[in-house]
Amino acid sequence: MLEALLVMALGAVVLGAALGYAAVRFRVEGDPLVEKIDAILPQTQCGQCGFPGCKPYATAIAKGEAEINQCPPGGEEGIHKLADLLGREFKPLSAEHGVEKPKSVAVIDEQACIGCTLCIQACPVDAIVGAAKQMHTIVASQCTGCELCLPPCPVDCISMEPIAESVETWKWRYPVVRIVPAQKEAA
């Protein structure tokens, strides 16, 4: 009886030590799940999800503190991808966080700009150039279309313009399967 207890206790100690060692030796730096979720998010950094950026939202999803349907720029496709990654059920985009819009860029009406620098401070990706009392302009290629520069502008000189399709960005359409009614046979 005692022998058996000792053997079991020894086994427990040895295995526990091995597990403890493994936990230290093979520690994972950071949370790989957060990185994976962050890679799916569109990096608009717009904050529509209720978090201050895409990374915090990804962290919240990973912790189970946020739903996967709070990202309007990611749209339905983004939700599908997150659902696949996390093994969760697909949910339609939550209406309180916004609606999916066509991709746009912000445009500053340079005649009206007074050079207050408020939009520069609001831009999460530093896509606005300008200085105090100098005209500002947006680097369109770096603008994520987050709309965060719209509210701070005191003269409402920023507007969002949808990106037009060009020959280079045009996509082939999904081949439409045409359904033709069968010809009536002559009686």
């Binding site: 962050d38 998010l41 569109p42 990096q43 608009t44 950094q45 950026g53 895409c54 990374k55 999460p124 990706v125 530093d126 896509a127 770096q142 994520t144």
Partner: peptide, 11 residues
């Protein structure tokens, strides 16, 4: 998106 992430993190 990768460029935006990098710029955001730099900011």
């Amino acid at each position: 998106a990768d460029v935006a992430r990098e710029r955001y993190e730099f900011r």
